[in-house]
Amino acid sequence: MTDTPLIKVEHLKVYFPITSGVLQRKSGEVRAVDDVSFEILRGKTVGLVGESGSGKTTIGRALIRLIEPTDGHIFYKGEEITRLSAKEFRPYRKKIQIIFQDPYNSLNPRLTIADIVGEALEIHFPRMTRLQRRSRVADLLAKVGLKPEHLDRYPHEFSGGQRQRIGIARALAVEPEFIVCDEPVSALDVSVQAQIVNLLQDLQEELGLTYLFIAHDLAVVEHISDFVLVMNRGKIVEAATAEEIYTHPQDDYTRKLLDAVPKL
């Protein structure tokens, strides 16, 4: 293991143009992510916390190239991946994966679980036979705590927590090294939230995964993360270890987030 971080982000900017009029002229821009830099070490979890509109989701999307960054650099194991063409980026799709917030909309309602999870295998392991794929999907389901008999069911037959498990199985199918967890527990009951957080931690231990864990709830982020980034209005206002954030918050905004966590 070298000292090169798995992910390194330098001066990342994502601006969205505001257009107006018939000719769609650019009349302004929204600075969703405004000059953000951070690193993620292999096997670690970096938490990214902030309110809706803070730009935290945009960072996640930019990392997996669902959004083109306006400026800045993203390095994967020291290699710059910011300006690769779609084709050049393809190998990285196998290494970088994402888990979404909304378990109800993140699975195609017309496909069976076997098809949803198997799609990744179809793309990245084209030589697998149908049977091999099926058994691999069954293994993945077992890994996330589902049963092989769930293979031929449709998403609507599952609860929110189970769907999130299916989403995790899909992300794991390509054997990624890095997973962007985009508010994976925000839409779930607290009790289910605990199960999913535990599952993510177990998988990290077993497979040596690296996470960027995005959430608005500092309590969850503090629990799962080694290092925490606090984001407000497109900028990172505080970056420190999880303990440091809790014991010695520096920024007012961090204090506000801490204060908002319910005390029991």
Binding site: R93, K94, I98, D102, N108, H124, G167
Partner: peptide, 13 residues
């Protein structure tokens, strides 16, 4: 803009 389309894109489909 539904996440399942983003998921497919993220897989490189």
């Amino acid at each position: 803009n539904r996440p399942f389309i983003h998921a497919a894109e993220a897989l490189g489909q």
